[in-house]
C-alpha cells in the first residue's frame, strides 16, 4: 500500500458459482481524488462499486479505507455514500426528509438538522423544493436530491453509479460541471462508474478501464485517450482501425500476411478514423460506404487489411462510392501495444 493511498483494493474477486464477475482487482485511490471506473456493461465496474459499498461480499481480496480494513464491515457502518443510477429516492418522504434521512439516523434533530439540509439543498440548487415529493420533481431534480442526500452526511467516500445516464444531453453537461464543482468544494473522494468515455475523461483525475472483470489500464484521461495500452482500450477510445503486424508485414483480414510492409517492433497498431490519410499512400482500397457527419465524412474502405474506417473533413469534398482509392496509415499517429 503506497502512502498516498486512501482507498486500496487488493486482489478483489467476486464470483457467483462458476462465473467470475471481478477477478483479482488491484487499484488505489488517493484522498480527494476523482477516479472513474470505465467499461462496457458487464465489465464488472458496478460489481466492484457495490463491493466497495459493502452491498456485495467479495469471495476473496481486501478493501482498505483510510488505513482500515473494511472488507467485513457492514455497509451501514462504512460511511460510504452511493448515488444510484435510478436515484433511489424514498417515494413517501419529502425532499427535506429524504436529505435528512442519514442525519436523523446519526441522532441529529432541530435547528442544526434544518440548517445542514438547507445547505445541502442549496449546494445542488434546490432551495425552495424541500416540501415536494420526489414524484413531483423532474429527473434532473431527483438526481440532485439523491446527490444532496449522499453528500449531506459527509461520507468518507462517494460512489456514483452512472448518475447521469437517465438525463437528457443538455442536463448531462450541466450536471457534469456541477459534480466537478461539488467535488472540488467538498474535497470529496469520488469513484464514478460509467460506460461513457467522454464523462470519464472530462471529470476524472484518473480512469480505471475495465473489461471482463479485469483492469485493462489505469491512467490519467490523457494517458488513456492518447496512449492506450491494450487493443480493448484502443478500440474503446476510438482507435477503431486495429492492425496486427508480424515479421514486419501487416496481417490481412483472414490473418494471413499481406504484402504491406510495416517496420515496427510492435505486434498491434491502431488508428483513429481521423488519422487515416485518404487519397495517397501504399494501401489500395475501394470505398464501400460513406456517412455525412456534419463536420466530417466517414468512409468505410475495403482494403487488403480489412475494412478501414477513415474520417475526412467535410470541406475536403466527397469521394464517390465504389471508387478506387489509396490510403496511408501513418505510423506516427498509431497507438501501439504488444
Amino acid at each position: 500500500m503506497s502512502s498516498s493511498a486512501y482507498l486500496t483494493i487488493r486482489d478483489l474477486t467476486l464470483s457467483y458459482g462458476a462465473s467470475v464477475a471481478v477477478a483479482g482487482l488491484n487499484f488505489e485511490v488517493a484522498n480527494g481524488e476523482f477516479v472513474s471506473l470505465l467499461g462496457p456493461s458487464g465489465c464488472g465496474k458496478t460489481t466492484t462499486m457495490r463491493a466497495i459499498a459493502g452491498l456485495l461480499q467479495p469471495s476473496a481480496g481486501r478493501i482498505f479505507l483510510g488505513g482500515e480494513d473494511i472488507t467485513r464491515v457492514p455497509p451501514n457502518k462504512r460511511d460510504i455514500g452511493l448515488v444510484f443510477q435510478s436515484y433511489a429516492l424514498f417515494p413517501h418522504l419529502s425532499v427535506f426528509d429524504n436529505v435528512a434521512f442519514g442525519l436523523k439516523l446519526k441522532g441529529m434533530r432541530g435547528g442544526e438538522l434544518t440548517r445542514l439540509v438547507d445547505e445541502a439543498l442549496a449546494s445542488v440548487g434546490l432551495t425552495g423544493y424541500a416540501k415536494r415529493l420526489p414524484k413531483e420533481l423532474s429527473g434532473g431534480q431527483q438526481q440532485r436530491v439523491a446527490l444532496a442526500r449522499s453528500i449531506v452526511v459527509r461520507p468518507r467516500l462517494l460512489l456514483l453509479d452512472e448518475p447521469l445516464s437517465n438525463l437528457d444531453a443538455r442536463l448531462r453537461v450541466e450536471m457534469r460541471a456541477e459534480l466537478g464543482r461539488l467535488q472540488r468544494d467538498l474535497k470529496l473522494t469520488m469513484i464514478y462508474v460509467t460506460h461513457d468515455q467522454s464523462e470519464a475523461l472530462a471529470l476524472s483525475d484518473r480512469v480505471v478501464v475495465m473489461n471482463k472483470g479485469r483492469i485493462e489500464q489505469v491512467g490519467s484521461p490523457g494517458d488513456i485517450y492518447e496512449r492506450p495500452q491494450t487493443a480493448f482500450v484502443a478500440q474503446f477510445m476510438g482507435f477503431e482501425n486495429i492492425v496486427t503486424v508480424q515479421a514486419g508485414r501487416a496481417c490481412g483480414r483472414d490473418g494471413a500476411l499481406s504484402d504491406i510492409a510495416m517496420d515496427v517492433p510492435f505486434t498491434t497498431l491502431a488508428w483513429r478514423p481521423a488519422a487515416v490519410v485518404l487519397g495517397g499512400g501504399p494501401i489500395p482500397g475501394t470505398i464501400r460506404a460513406a456517412a455525412y457527419l456534419g463536420q466530417s465524412i466517414e468512409y468505410l474502405v475495403d482494403t487488403p487489411l480489412g475494412i478501414i474506417k477513415a474520417e475526412t473533413p467535410a470541406s475536403a469534398g466527397r469521394v464517390s462510392l465504389g471508387s478506387e482509392v489509396r490510403i496511408d496509415l501513418p505510423l506516427e499517429k498509431a497507438a501501439s501495444f504488444a
Binding site: 459499498a53 459493502g54 452491498l55 455497509p75 451501514n76 457502518k77 462504512r78 460510504i80 455514500g81 452511493l82 444510484f84 435510478s86 433511489a88 429516492l89 424514498f90 417515494p91 413517501h92 434521512f101 442519514g102 439516523l105 446519526k106 442526500r149 452526511v153
Partner: peptide, 26 residues
C-alpha cells in the same frame, strides 16, 4: 424498487430499520 433499501442501509440504517422506515410505509 429494491435500491431504496440499499440507499437507506448506506445512510446508516440496519436492514430491519430500512424495512420499517422505507419499505413498510410504501
Amino acid at each position: 424498487r429494491v435500491d431504496i433499501e440499499e440507499a437507506a442501509v448506506l445512510l446508516g440504517s440496519t436492514r430491519l430499520g430500512a424495512f420499517r422506515s422505507v419499505v413498510l410505509p410504501n
